[in-house]
C-alpha cells in the first residue's frame, strides 16, 4: 500500500510538472539555461546566426554569400510598397506610424480588444483591408519584400516580445503557442522542440538543426531553396511560410497562414529570442 501511494504521488508530481504554466520569463530562463549547457562555447548574441554559429565550414560559405546579397532589389520594392498611397489617399504609415524603423519591433503583440495575437504580416493585410485595398498573400512575394524592408529598418534593435501577465487572453495565447511548439505531430511524431531544442546542433538529413533561440532575428528570410524553385528570382518567405515547411517535414498538415495556431506559435516562438538583435533580412540555405 505504501509503495502504491508513493507511486501514485510520483505520478501526480510528473503530471503537475508538465501541466504547470511556467510563465514567459521562467520559460525563457529555462530555455537559455538548457542551451547554455548544450553549447557552452556559444555566446548569446551568436544564436542569431542559427546553425551557422555551430559550423565553421558552413559559416565561411555563408559569409561569402552574404557579400553579395541577392535581395537588394526586393528590398527596394518593399520600400516602394511602403511609400505607395492607397486609392483612398491614405497609406501604410496611417496604420503603422510614420517611422518605419519602429514597426518591426512592435510585433507580434497581443491585441486586448480583438483578443488575438497580431503579427506584422497579419497587420499589413488588415491595414490594406481597412483601406479597401486588395490584401497581399501572406507567405511570400510582395508582403515579404515589405516586411523584410521594415525589418531592415529596425536592424540593431532588440527583439522584445512581452506577454502581459495580467491579461488572461494574452497568457492563454502564449500558452497555446508554447504547447504547439512542444507537441509531437504528423506521421513522424515529432515536435518543433524535438528538432530545435533536444536535437539542436545535430545533423538531420544533411542539415544542422538550429537552436530555437535566435531563429527569428533575420525574418523574412531569403532561402537558397526557395530561390531555386523560382529560377533564382525570389527566395523570400515569411516566418509562417517557414512553419509550413517544418510541419510538412514531419508529415503534418500545415495550418492556415496567419490563423490562430501559427500566430500563437509565433507569439511564443519570437519571444524566445528576446534580447537578440534584429539583423534582417538574411540568407539561409
Amino acid at each position: 500500500m505504501k509503495r502504491l501511494l508513493i507511486g501514485a504521488f510520483a505520478a501526480l508530481l510528473t503530471v503537475g510538472a508538465t501541466a504547470t504554466l511556467a510563465g514567459q520569463s521562467e520559460d525563457l530562463q529555462a530555455l537559455r539555461d538548457y542551451m547554455q549547457n548544450r553549447f557552452p562555447n556559444l555566446a548569446f548574441m551568436d544564436y542569431a546566426n542559427g546553425s551557422y554559429a555551430l559550423d565553421a565550414a558552413k559559416a565561411t560559405q555563408w559569409e561569402s554569400q552574404r557579400d553579395f546579397p541577392p535581395f537588394l532589389d526586393h528590398l527596394d520594392e518593399g520600400e516602394k510598397i511602403w511609400n505607395t498611397p492607397f486609392t483612398n489617399g491614405k497609406g501604410f504609415s496611417d496604420c503603422f506610424g510614420s517611422d518605419p524603423s519602429k514597426v518591426r519591433v512592435k510585433y507580434p503583440r497581443w491585441n486586448a480588444e480583438a483578443k488575438k495575437v497580431e503579427t506584422l504580416e497579419g497587420q499589413i493585410v488588415a491595414c490594406q483591408k481597412a483601406n479597401g485595398e486588395k490584401p497581399l498573400k501572406t507567405k511570400k512575394g510582395k508582403i515579404a519584400y515589405l516586411s523584410a524592408w521594415l525589418a531592415s529598418q529596425a536592424n540593431g534593435q532588440k527583439i522584445n516580445v512581452i506577454v502581459p501577465q495580467n491579461d488572461p487572453g494574452a497568457v492563454a495565447a502564449y500558452e497555446a503557442g508554447r504547447k504547439f511548439f512542444y507537441t509531437k505531430r504528423g506521421q513522424l511524431n515529432m515536435s518543433c522542440a524535438d528538432c530545435h531544442v533536444y536535437n539542436s546542433g545535430m545533423q538531420a538529413r544533411g542539415n544542422l538543426l538550429s537552436p530555437v533561440i535566435g531563429q527569428v532575428t533575420h525574418f523574412p528570410v531569403w532561402r537558397g531553396k526557395w530561390a531555386r524553385a523560382t529560377g533564382g528570382k525570389d527566395g523570400f518567405g515569411t516566418l509562417q511560410r517557414r512553419y509550413d515547411g517544418c510541419n510538412k517535414q514531419v508529415r503534418a498538415k500545415p495550418f492556415k497562414n496567419q490563423g490562430d495556431e501559427y500566430s500563437n506559435l509565433e507569439y511564443f516562438h519570437q519571444s524566445m529570442s528576446n534580447g537578440l538583435t534584429i539583423d534582417a533580412p538574411d540568407y539561409r540555405e
Binding site: 508538465t18 512542444y182 509531437k184 505531430r185 533536444y198
Partner: peptide, 20 residues
C-alpha cells in the same frame, strides 16, 4: 487510419511541454 492515429496522437499530447 491516419485520421484515427492523428486524433490519438493529439490526445496523447494534451499536456505537452518542455522536458527540462
Amino acid at each position: 487510419f491516419q485520421g484515427v492515429a492523428g486524433y490519438q496522437q493529439a490526445m496523447d499530447q494534451k499536456n505537452a511541454g518542455p522536458q527540462f
